[in-house]
Design a binder for these strands. Structure first.
Lengths: 231, 231
DNA sequence: CGAACAATTGATCCTCATCAAACCTTGTGG
DNA sequence: CCACAAGGTTTGATGAGGATCAATTGTTCG
């Protein structure tokens, strides 16, 4: 699959890049395709490349020494990932990137971006904008995890997923993921997620299936996520 | 209190700045002193200024709609805070900054930094380095909160505090904070922190007092923080 | 049809949060 | 200098919220 360099402008960090910038980046890019379950990189690897996903879906996750995982975020087409290494020379990836389905990404040497940014402030700004977004999201999720009850956390994770990768179907918003995925996204276990989903189904908020959830009543889910006096 | 502009080089983001840069920033800076418990800014305020703490201590914290708080980090002298707004025009602070003691900070219009960065890539890089550091720390703390037990989280919070603001005394490392602070830092309650501290004191790891902890056996605390098979 | 894997459900147990009461420590004002 | 107030800390009792484990039931795909 050959990529038109100008397609790279869909990447948020490259929204203000010139055509020349994009061509230059494309020239330095290598395409990498991997199968479901395989990894683009592992936590701890030297962060010599950053990636742009051009097809498929992946997830960023952290693992603790005991092997338990948490999902940091899911990566969709035209999103950049593994870019933290572009800033610190000699850095290592702070998380692992695993394909959720057959996926293809462009790999670009971190130096390339670093060099470009030296003379193109708009690139730095757009990358910083992305970073501040991550910081805010992580801060929020941290607070959530520290202060909110599971049901609400699951509701939030579901809504985040819906905006990130939900597809509107008749009757609601369709999502595709396992209970395990959702559990890792909300800091709980697949059992708890399953119970909560069953309860929601009973209440008519969602329709659950294997690796699939249809949100019938988005407003109802929002009200669980937001409701104040969750005594 | 008048500040020598060159002192600003102690700020990590300004480590590579020229003398002229620093003078320019100093010219645009306003000094603000506040008392213990008061706020430099609140979560949700327009982020028109970034700050550099020049004396005292402060904390960054997030509050949820119900009023529960979590501590994101403590701010020490010559650290920058509230800088996320320097990137996004029209942004609001994602957290509140409260003084832990009488504190003074330089407030600088976000625009100033934004304009400087347009022509000084080293500033952008140093700010990005700071940001990637935050992202990594938040990712780690998020994982901790999702997967580790309280005792270990408290141990980690304690160690983080020790490196950030511990002072070596004979017999150990001395720290100054309330149980409540530590609880907010590790996502638990002051009661649990108190119990854990008592237990550690019984084991000879620490010596606890009012608003004060002396770490007698740092290695012992580390082993609690790291130990694998915390079955 | 069978194997592999996702999901459900029930039973049990454990970690912590919550609430209440008492205790210490520090600083202040009479 | 003592008494008292304010706020930090400790400790106990209790219970809820979820994790964990086990067994069973879908679902999908070769």
């Amino acid at each position: 699959m050959k990529i038109d360099p100008l397609d790279l402008r869909q990447v948020s960090v490259f929204q203000n890049a010139t055509d020349e910038d994009l061509k230059l980046i494309a020239q330095h890019a290598v395409e990498r395709s991997i199968e479901e379950g395989e990894f683009f990189f592992f936590q701890g690897d030297p962060a010599d490349y950053f990636y742009v996903l051009i097809s498929g879906r992946a997830k960023l996750m952290q693992t603790n020494p005991a092997g338990q995982q948490v999902n940091l975020r899911t990566i969709n087409e035209w999103q950049m990932f593994g870019a933290l290494g572009a800033v610190r020379e000699g850095a290592t990836y702070p998380a692992s990137a695993q394909a959720l389905e057959h996926s293809t990404a462009l790999a670009v040497k971190s130096d390339t971006l670093r060099d470009l940014m030296k003379t193109r402030p708009y690139l730095s700004f757009d990358l910083m904008r992305l970073m501040t977004g991550y910081i805010q999201e992580m801060q929020e999720r941290y607070r959530e995890l520290a202060t909110e009850k599971v049901e609400r956390r699951i509701a939030r994770a579901l809504l985040r997923l819906a905006t990130q990768m939900g597809t509107k179907k008749k009757g609601g918003i369709e999502l595709s993921f396992t209970r395990q995925d959702l559990a890792e996204m909300s800091g709980t276990t697949l059992f708890t997620v399953s119970r909560v989903m069953s309860e929601w189904e009973r209440r008519g908020l969602v329709e659950a299936g294997r690796e699939r959830v249809l949100i019938r009543d988005p407003h109802g889910v929002v009200s669980i996520a937001e409701e104040l006096n969750q005594q």
